[in-house]
Design a binder for these strands. Sequence first.
DNA 1: GCACATGTTCTCGG
DNA 2: CCCGAGAACATGTG
Length: 259
Amino acid sequence: MRRQLVPVLVGRSINQVVCGPPSYFFVTPPGKLKRVLVGQSVRDLSRYGKAIVASLSDGSQLLLHLGMTGQLVARALPQDGHVHLVLELGKSRVVSFRDVRKFGKVEWIAPGKKCARLDRLGPDALNIEPEQLWTQFRRRRIAVKTALLNQQVLAGVGNIYADEALHSAGIRPTRSTARLTRKEVESIAREVRDVLRRAVAHGGSTINDYLKPDGDLGGFQDWHQVYGKEGEACTRCLGRIVRKVVGARSTHFCPSCQR
DNA sequence: GCACATGTTCTCGG
DNA sequence: CCCGAGAACATGTG
């Protein structure tokens, strides 16, 4: 998402901001958001875990998080009551943020101010080192699946990629972090990175809602091995994929080859 | 009506 | 203090 949004946003100025009605979605209220954003230019676009952060000309930042059903697309969308934020950066150059469930977030961070949401994040999943995971895992006794979903342990892995990475690593999601061997942790770190890299290369996973900024569907859902595959044959062994609730989240794994 | 949903944060017990 | 369970946020699909 960040890569596709860079050419649309970086170096351009925000001419107009259109907000939907106040809601849970707006960490910064719509009125204030308009006031602080209009007239600024975007210097740079970064990603921290699942958050996209734009650095603005006055030193402030704009944080965007998709939540469960968020869509960030570089075009105007039909006003269907789910488009909460539109940034206009010149004629027909528009970024729209649509989110049906409104679990997504828009937050403006004043110059020099800290953002609790960002400060809490652990090391980024895309470059995670085994040693970092080992350190995090040793001081907890929780299911490894729960640990991977905890953004303070590791930033950027969600329910789909936690299940996919643990399947690739051959580790059962319910295993306690404290009881994993070094080799197992190395394998998890490697597969987290690999699954995420491949997912990015395929444009992300569209289950129902996700759209790439260019408006197309992602393609990685066609490469999922376990997520949403309950009852299907495992691709690594002769087992069948089961679904079980772990850490209050639906968890998919193969009981036969994930130990 | 029921189950479930790509996320995060909080409370309440044990 | 650690941890799991459950709930909350809001709205849709099958």
